[in-house]
Design a protein around this nucleic acid. Structure first.
Lengths: 343, 343
DNA sequence: TTGTATGCGTTATCAT
DNA sequence: ATGATAACGCATACAA
C-alpha cells in the first residue's frame, strides 16, 4: 500500500526549516543559503517528494501547460489523420517539453462541440491550433477567442487582417519554386491538383504560387488543368482520373499536398502512364511516405521541426505578453525521382 | 482587456445562493432543486464562468487527466515515430476525451531522464505507456512504478509474471494465422524478418506464432530464413538484402511489422524479384501505408481503435481500484495483393 | 434542500 | 536568510 504523499510540510519537518523555506529552496530561489538548500533537497529526495502541480497552479495562477487542439474532421479522410499534422504533433510535443511545458492534446470535432476553453478553465496557459485547413467556420470562432484575449496561435495561412496569430510555411514561394523547377526541366503543360477555394487559404496560396511561376515563364494558364482535391489519397486519385478524362494534354502535375500527389501517382500508374517520363509529379509537405513512394516523390518540404519549435516559442512569448510579428517559415524543394530531374 | 475571471462566489452572489450550492448545482448533484440549478446555470453562463480545474483538482485530489508516455527512442528510426503508435495515439486521444478525461502527451527519452512522475505530481490520475518494444531497460522501471502503487497500463506483450498491467494484441495467434495462410497458398519456404530476442517480446511472440504454424504443417523450420530487424523500413530493407545474400531459397516472407515488410518489399523489388509471384510478403500492424504500397500489403491488422478504447477503459478501472484481468485483443488478417491470394 | 465552515498544498507577502 | 501567515477557488462534512 502506498503511504501518504509527502508535502512540503513533511520536508520542512525533516529538514528542520520552515515550509516556506522549503518552497523557496526547491524553486532555486537565491534567497536561501546553499546549506539549507542542500538539506531540503536531501529531505525531498528521501521522502520522494513531488510538488503538487494543482496546488502550485492554483496559487501561481499558471499551469506550465500548453494545449494542442487538432482538428479531427477534415473534409477529406474521416478515419486517418494527415501524416503531416502527425509530424507537427511530434515536433510540438518535443518543443513543448523542451521548454518545460506539459502538453495536452485534444482532437476537436469541429462541427459539434468546440472545446477551446482550456485557458478559461486554467488547464493550459495557451493554445495551439493545428489542422484547420477549412477556414470558413474556423475563423469566426477564432475571432471570438481573440476578442476574449485568449493566448493562442494557429498553424495556417499568414494573411492580412486575420484575427489572432498565425504561423505557417511560405506556401506561395514553395509552390512557385516547385513549378519553376518543373518548367526548368522543360515541362510546359503543368496541372494543379487541389482546391483553390477561399475556404482553404493554404491551398489557395499554393495555387497562386503555381500561377505566378507559369506566368513568369510566359506559359499558358489553362483552367482545364486544375482539379479540386482535398488532402487524401482518395481525392488525389479521383482528381487525377478526372484530369485524364478531360483529354487535355499535360506533361507535369503539381499537387497541393503529398497525399494528393501519391493518390495521383497511383491513378496515373494504373492508367499505364510512366512517371516521370510521361508526366512529372511534384507534391507538397514532404511527409515520410513521400520518400518511399514508387517513384520517390519530389516535393516541397515543410520544416515541421522548426515549425513546432516556433509555434511553441511564439506562443510562450504571447503568454508573457510580448508582441507578435508575422513571419513565414521557408520551405525547401526536395528533388527526387518523380519529377525526372534525377535517376 | 479581459475582466477578472468569475469564481463560484460570483455565481453565488448573482444567483442568490451559497457558494456550495453553486458547486453542487454545476456538478449536477441530485441534492439541488431544479429551480436553483437553473438559476445557477444562468448566472454561470452570464458570467462566462468556467471551473478552475486546479482548484477542483487540488480539493478533489484527482485530475481528470491521463498521461500518455510515448517512447521516443526506438533502436530503429530516430526521427520518425512508428505510424502504428501514431494511430494508437489517435485512438487513445479519442477514447480519453470520450470518457471525459484530458490527455497529456509526452515523448520519453528513455535513456536520459525518464519522467514518469505525472501521477506523483498529481498531473494525471493514471499513465499509459506506449512504444516500449525494447523491454529490457523498461521492465525494471515499470516494476518500481508498480511497487509504488502507481496506476498505469502498458501497451505491449501480455506475459506471465510481469509487474504492472499489460494489454496487447494476440501477437502469436495473429502471426500463426498469417503464416498458415501463406502455407495454404502453397508456400513452403517462409522467411521471418524481425528480431526474436527476449528483449522484444512482441516480436518474439510473432516469431513463436510463425514457428507454430510451420510445425503444425510439418514444414522445416530453417534458422537461415530468419533475419533480425527492428521496426523501420531501413532495417527491413537491410534484412531482406541479408536474406538474399544467404542464397537460401524461399518463396514467402513474413515480417514482424509493416515497416519491415515495406522495406523488404522495396529491397526485393530492387533485386528484380516479383511480388507476389516469386515471393509472397505478409506484414504485421496494418498501418495506413500498408494498403497503399505497391503491391498492397497483406498484413495482420491490429485493432488500434479497440486497443485505445480498452487501454483507457481499463486504466480508468485501475484508478477506481478495480481489478485487472489480462486479456488479448484479437487481430485480423487483411488479405491484399502481396501474398498472392488475390489480384 | 440549502448554508456554514474547513482544508486541499502551494506560493507570495509580510515581517523578523 | 528565514519564519509566520494569508490567499488561490473549489468540494466536502456537517449542521440546519
Amino acid at each position: 500500500v502506498k503511504s501518504r504523499r509527502a508535502t512540503s510540510f513533511d520536508i520542512a519537518e525533516l529538514a528542520g526549516v520552515s515550509q516556506s523555506t522549503v518552497s523557496r529552496a526547491l524553486r532555486n530561489s537565491l534567497l536561501v543559503s546553499e546549506d539549507t538548500r542542500r538539506k531540503v533537497r536531501a529531505a525531498a529526495q528521501q521522502l520522494n517528494y513531488k510538488v503538487d502541480v494543482n496546488a502550485r497552479n492554483l496559487r501561481a495562477q499558471r499551469t506550465n501547460t500548453l494545449a494542442l487542439l487538432l482538428c479531427a474532421d477534415n473534409e477529406a479522410s474521416e478515419s486517418q489523420i494527415n501524416p503531416f499534422f502527425l509530424s507537427m504533433l511530434g515536433s510540438i510535443t518535443k518543443a513543448s517539453a523542451h521548454h518545460g511545458y506539459d502538453l495536452l492534446v485534444s482532437f476537436q470535432h469541429f462541427s459539434n462541440d468546440w472545446r477551446a476553453d482550456y485557458e478559461d478553465s486554467k488547464r493550459a496557459d495557451g493554445l495551439i491550433f493545428l489542422g484547420y485547413g477549412d477556414y470558413t467556420g474556423y475563423i469566426s470562432k477564432i475571432a471570438r477567442l481573440a476578442e476574449q484575449g485568449a493566448h493562442f496561435i494557429t498553424w495556417g495561412p499568414v494573411l492580412k487582417g486575420q484575427p489572432g496569430h498565425f504561423l505557417g510555411s511560405d506556401n506561395r514561394a514553395g509552390a512557385r519554386g516547385a513549378v519553376e523547377h518543373l518548367i526548368s526541366l522543360g515541362r510546359t503543360r503543368i496541372a494543379f491538383l487541389g482546391t483553390k477555394s477561399d475556404a482553404f487559404p493554404e491551398f489557395k496560396e499554393r495555387h497562386l504560387g503555381y500561377c505566378e511561376a507559369l506566368q513568369a515563364a510566359g506559359l499558358l494558364l489553362d483552367p482545364a488543368l486544375q482539379v479540386d482535391a482535398f488532402t487524401s489519397q482518395e481525392h488525389g486519385a479521383r482528381a487525377a482520373r478526372q484530369l485524364l478524362a478531360r483529354n487535355r494534354p499535360f506533361d507535369a502535375l503539381f499537387a497541393a499536398s503529398d497525399l494528393i500527389a501519391m493518390g495521383a501517382l497511383r491513378a496515373l500508374q494504373e492508367a499505364a502512364i510512366e512517371i516521370p517520363q510521361d508526366i512529372a509529379v511534384v507534391g507538397f509537405d514532404d511527409i515520410e511516405e513521400a520518400s518511399r513512394s514508387m517513384p520517390a516523390l519530389t516535393t516541397v518540404r515543410q520544416d515541421t521541426k522548426l515549425a513546432g519549435e516556433q509555434l511553441v516559442v511564439r506562443l510562450l512569448a504571447l503568454i508573457r505578453g510580448e508582441g507578435f510579428e508575422a513571419s513565414l517559415i521557408p520551405t525547401q524543394l526536395k528533388i527526387r525521382k518523380s519529377c525526372g530531374a534525377c535517376g
